[in-house]
Amino acid sequence: MEKLHFNFDTTDAIAKPVHVGVVASGDLEVIFRPTDKKTEVNIVTGSDGFKEVWANVLKRFFDRYPIQANIEINDFGSTPGVVNLRLTQALEELKDEK
């Protein structure tokens, strides 16, 4: 297990907290929480040694969607593709009116 921490300079505030995903094998859960501070990403991952990969996946995501949020990720060995999918899903939830 490894704990990772990232900061991003993003500005699009989000209106509500959302949660998607499950900490299942090859999967992860993602929580977005509104914040008025800097965007913070805190990751607990079961696969050690992938800090650089995480940095790249997250950078690409925030380049495209510069949301400002407190983000928590619990990861159980998901691939970058699955990570991106879950992040995008969380974004979809934000748009959901219910």
């Binding site: 949660h19 900490v23 859960e29 991952t45 159980f76």
Partner: peptide
């Protein structure tokens, strides 16, 4: 007591196990 309530198991991380919210 859903994922946003921050009621995570205090016993998993000390054993290097990824918790769930």
């Amino acid at each position: 007591v859903g994922p946003l309530d921050d009621m995570i198991s205090p016993h998993l991380e000390p054993q290097n196990i990824v918790p769930e919210s």
